[in-house]
Computed example of a mutant assay.
Amino acid sequence: MSDIERRLSIGEVAERTGLSVHALRFYEREGLLAAPVSRDAAGRRVYHEDDVDWLTVCVILRGSAMPLPQIRRYTELVRAGEGNETERLDLLREHRQRVLDQMDQLRKCLDLINYKVGVYEDILDDRPQSVGTS
């Protein structure tokens, strides 16, 4: 059986993606999966490698602070297939700009923090070191 055909349990997918079982169910309910989740004869969710790959994309987009409605929209576009690449590109370009803006803001924060660390290190370096008595 090839990796593409391999069936994965919800626990295996949770472990591989870093998402909790609860989060996986939430993603499914919210329409964030590129393909419907299959069920086995007992009604348990069955995932495939393509699901893991897609969820990895979702985790990265979420980690970059993309709002769920935008991830859902991107998922809908992917699910719809060819012909909407311009809309997908626009969505990703807009998000990329937000990420770049966030990075710029974080750099400013880091600059301030580094400055303050330097101030306190200088203060502590200028204090006389106490010599212990033996």
Rank of each mutant, 00 (worst) to 15 (best):
R72P: 01
P67Y: 09
V13C: 07
T17W: 00
V21A: 15
D111C: 08
D122N: 01
V99P: 01
R98A: 01
L61Q: 09
K116F: 01
T86W: 10
E5N: 14
A23E: 11
R29N: 12
E82G: 15
V57C: 09
R73F: 11
L112T: 08
R79K: 01
V117L: 08
Y120G: 01
E85L: 15
L110Y: 04
D53A: 15
A42D: 04
V52I: 15
Y74P: 06
R45V: 08
L100R: 04
V117R: 02
R93M: 00
A35S: 13
A23S: 13
R88T: 03
D125N: 06
I10G: 08
Q105D: 12
D50H: 14
S64L: 15
G18T: 10
N114L: 09
R16E: 15
E12Y: 09
L100F: 03
G43P: 10
C109G: 04
E5H: 13
V78F: 11
E5R: 12
W54D: 10
S64C: 13
A14K: 08
P36V: 04
R39H: 11
G18V: 12
L110K: 06
L91I: 04
V117Q: 05
R73L: 09
R88S: 00
L92S: 00
L32G: 03
A42Q: 11
S38L: 14
E30Q: 14
I123M: 04
R107Y: 05
R96K: 03
V52G: 10
L92K: 05
V46Q: 13
S20M: 11
D104N: 03
D90L: 02
K116T: 03
V52Q: 10
R96E: 04
V131I: 05
C58V: 15
V99M: 05
S134W: 09
R25P: 13
R127Y: 07
N84C: 14
A34P: 03
G83C: 12
G63H: 03
G132K: 07
E87D: 10
L110W: 04
D111W: 00
L61P: 07
Q97M: 02
R44C: 08
Q105A: 14
G81H: 07
D126F: 05
S64P: 00
Q105I: 06
L55R: 13
A41P: 08
V99G: 06
G63Q: 05
V99C: 06
